[in-house]
Structures are given as C-alpha cells and as structure tokens.
Design a protein around this nucleic acid. Structure first.
Length: 291
DNA sequence: CGAATTTGACCGGCGC
DNA sequence: GCGCCGGTCAAATTCG
C-alpha cells in the first residue's frame, strides 16, 4: 500500500473498492514500437498484478489489449470519424441512417480487457457510465452488461461480464478513448487525490500505456490466462506474442500451470524487487518503499 | 422529476 | 437465404 498511502489515494472514492485490501504495486509494460498503435500511443501493454483475496474488495488480475480484434485485418485508421458516425446514429435514432451506414465498413475501437477479482460486477473507475444493454452470454450463466460513458460526445464503452469458469472474476473490456478528464479527478482535487488527477500525463496515462478507457489504474495485475475464457485467453496470448523480444523481458506472469494463480504477497514483492517495473510508469517522487 | 436501469426488439455480420 | 450471435436502441420502469 506504500505509494498509494503516500498519495492519499485511499480517499479516492472511485478506487476505494478497487484498492481496499490490495497491495498496490503496479507494472505496465509497453511496446516501444508505436507503429500501428492505438492513437499513436499504445501498441500493447501488460499489467502485472498480484491478487490478494479480500471479501468485498476487488483486484485486477490480468489485462490484455485487443487491438482491432487481434487477427482482424481491417484498416483501422480514422478513429475520430468512427465516433462521429456512431454519434449520429445515436442522436438521430433514425433507423434509415443505419442502412446508410451499411456501406461503410464498421470499425471497432481498440479494446482493452482485464480481469478483476470482484464481488460486484460494475467496478468504479472514476468515470460515469450508463448501462445501455445486457445480454446473456452463451456457455455462461452470467449476463454481459454494456456501458457507455455518460460524458457528452465521449464514445467510450465498456462491457462487463463474469468469467464463466471463475464466477469470482469479472472481465471488463474497454473500448475507445475518453476525450475528457475523469469526473472523479475534477471534483476531487482538493480533498483526496484522485489517481487520474495525479497521473494526467505522466506516461502512465498517455505516453507509456495509453490504455483506452482504462484510466491509469495503479493496480497490480497479472496474467491468469488459464482461467480466462478462450476468447480472452487468446487475446492475451496475442498481446504477449506481439511484443518484440526487447520487451518480453518485462513481462512477468504469475500464472501457474495448474490453472490457479498465485495469490501470495511474496510473489508480488518478488516481482517488484525483481524487475522494478514500477519505476517505468510511476515518477520516482511518487514511489515509496513498499516496506 | 430527471437520471439511470431494465429488457425485448431490432440490426448487421458471419457461417452454413 | 437463413439462422445464430453480438451489439445497440428505446420505451417502460425504477431510482434518487
């Protein structure tokens, strides 16, 4: 809990539920090669996490980037235009517009998915979301919920569903990029310190790992691909596989071959001591000794 | 009473 | 062409 306490982040309403009971060292690995990256920032990132199990708390277990669907060979060039088109459809609510849209190849925003140990489906992340749909997921007893950012003109979406083979795990998929600061950050400047306010352009949020819609979660993450659904598992594999060898040495996984994941804090500490990745994303002034 | 959620209908993409 | 499926819409309902 070291650097979070230093920053007073325990006051951050948005992340309270996320951080409670967690140790908070974080690592994000980014790819230096920016070509074809999302918005010119993010090629791929891996966030490592060690997961304590605390009732009523949540913690991120793994993350993956789904860039245009992985094996999708679409063009993926003009994100802005896509958003405008979606907005038009939304505001006019004219179904004939959709017919018009049929000519254009539908383009997907890059996605970022991560898994979270949580008892609640919808995790606070500092932004405000409006639920606009819910669908049953095939081969899963748990539904998938669809959320959209409530900020005007912001087209970020996210999907939330429970992992069917690990009901305690929530899979959250963000799609798009916020065009506005976090509401949490704008109203929390004086009291507690909101994470998104502290790390607006540190590279954590934009330069190093501009995770679409993910807003600088300073959380420990780890890959637990064995417990992922096949879809997300393959996504993670794609991400890791796409990293150039110069970056693969930054990847640390606490995945265990037997399908469970290591939840000992020792493993987390070992990871941090081992690779010191925290310094890659958190300015030195924000870091304190974990001890 | 406005905002948020629920939920069935609808749409487009895709495989057969 | 048809059916399945993921995703979205929007009216109805609930919530604060």
């Amino acid at each position: 809990m070291g650097f979070m306490e230093l920053l007073g982040l325990q006051d951050f309403q948005g992340f309270d539920s996320l951080l409670d009971g967690m140790s908070t060292s974080t690592s994000i690995i980014s790819n230096n090669d920016n070509k074809n990256s999302y918005g010119g920032f993010l090629e791929a990132s891996e966030v490592l996490n060690q997961v304590p199990t605390t009732p009523n708390s949540s913690s991120i277990s793994s993350a993956s980037i789904d860039e245009q669907g992985g094996d999708n060979t679409n063009l993926a060039k003009e994100e802005g235009e896509v958003q405008d088109e979606d907005l038009k459809n939304k505001t006019t609510t004219n179904k004939q517009l959709k017919v018009k849209k049929a000519n254009q190849k539908k383009q997907r925003e890059p996605r970022f998915a991560f898994m979270t140990k949580s008892e609640v489906d919808h995790l606070e992340d500092g932004y405000r979301w409006r639920k606009y749909g819910q669908k049953a997921v095939k081969n899963s007893p748990f539904p998938r919920s669809y959320y959209r950012c409530t900020a005007p003109a912001c087209n970020v979406k996210k999907r939330v569903e429970r992992c069917f083979n690990d009901p305690s795990t929530v899979i959250t998929t963000y799609e798009g990029q916020h065009i506005h600061p976090s509401p949490a950050m704008t109203r929390g400047a004086s009291g507690g310190s909101y994470l998104t306010g502290l790390l607006p352009d540190t590279g954590f949020s934009r330069g190093v790992a501009n995770v679409p819609g993910m807003f600088n979660l300073p959380l420990q993450m780890g890959v637990i691909a064995n417990s992922l659904s096949s879809t997300y598992s393959s996504n993670i594999n794609n991400v890791i596989g796409s990293l150039p060898s110069s970056n693969t040495n930054h990847i640390r996984s606490n995945t265990l071959s037997n399908g469970s994941y290591d939840q000992s804090s020792q493993a987390s500490a070992a990871i941090l001591r081992d690779n010191g990745l925290l310094q890659d994303i958190v300015p030195s002034l924000m870091r304190v000794n974990e001890d």
